[in-house]
């Protein structure tokens, strides 16, 4: 055993979840529909999304955020973190829609529309603030972000080496709206408020909130 264990916070969070009756129950309640293949489809995405929303609604943040916002130093950890929402079912799709089109789809749904509005309000970056957030409240930003999981706007981590996230969309074929589209996409991908909030949770450094 090395003296300084590298540790895998995401694995530790998964272990803690299965030792907690509520977290264990709602975790397998979404893993089941998110991995159950139905008639040529990889899964029933609607049921997977619904169960994911329930997971984040019912499970205490200590456990749900523990798995979603765990801090990582190696790929075994970041890949586990990326797999938290079962992206093969809940995130990826055959085609990547344009982000503005996806936003329109989101606005037709009551839950998605309100949660997206919460996200834009509570994760608004502000470079002059110490927290990097206009609202100076990491907990509200994390709540708004995790609230998008299980909607058509479901976001996930993009790569291994940073905390960049995005919904399943891009800004190809945006025409005249390319700037508006990039602005939307970058609010996810390059959001200093959200990144600081995730980091603070992962390191347990946000003493004001936790």
């Amino acid at each position: 055993e090395p003296v300084i264990s590298k540790g895998n916070n995401c694995l530790d969070a998964a272990k803690a979840c299965n030792l907690n009756d509520i977290c264990k129950k709602y975790r397998s309640a979404y893993i089941t529909p998110c991995t159950y293949s139905v008639s040529n489809e990889i899964c029933n995405k609607r049921k997977c999304h619904k169960a994911l929303r329930q997971f984040f609604d019912k499970v205490p943040p200590k456990h749900s955020y523990g798995m979603l916002f765990c801090s990582c130093r190696d790929i075994a950890c970041t890949e586990r973190r990326r797999q938290t929402i079962v992206p093969a079912c809940s995130y990826e799709d055959r085609e990547k829609p344009n982000c503005l089109n996806l936003q329109e789809t989101c606005k037709t749904n009551y839950i998605c529309r309100s949660r997206l509005a919460d996200f834009f309000t509570n994760c608004q970056p502000e470079s002059r603030s110490v927290s990097n957030c206009l609202k100076e409240n990491y907990a509200d930003c994390l709540l708004a972000y995790s609230g998008l999981i299980g909607t058509v706007m479901t976001p996930n981590y993009l790569n291994y080496n940073n905390l960049s996230v995005a919904p399943w969309c891009d800004c190809g074929s945006s025409g005249n709206d390319i700037e508006e589209c990039l602005k939307f996409l970058n609010f996810f991908q390059d959001n200093s408020c959200l990144k600081s909030a995730i980091q603070a949770f992962g390191n347990g450094t946000d003493v004001n909130v936790w």
Partner: peptide, 16 residues
Amino acid sequence: DDDLSFLDDDLSTYHI
């Protein structure tokens, strides 16, 4: 007891 799920060490397969 309720079902138990876990991620395989291959980091892509879930088991229940």
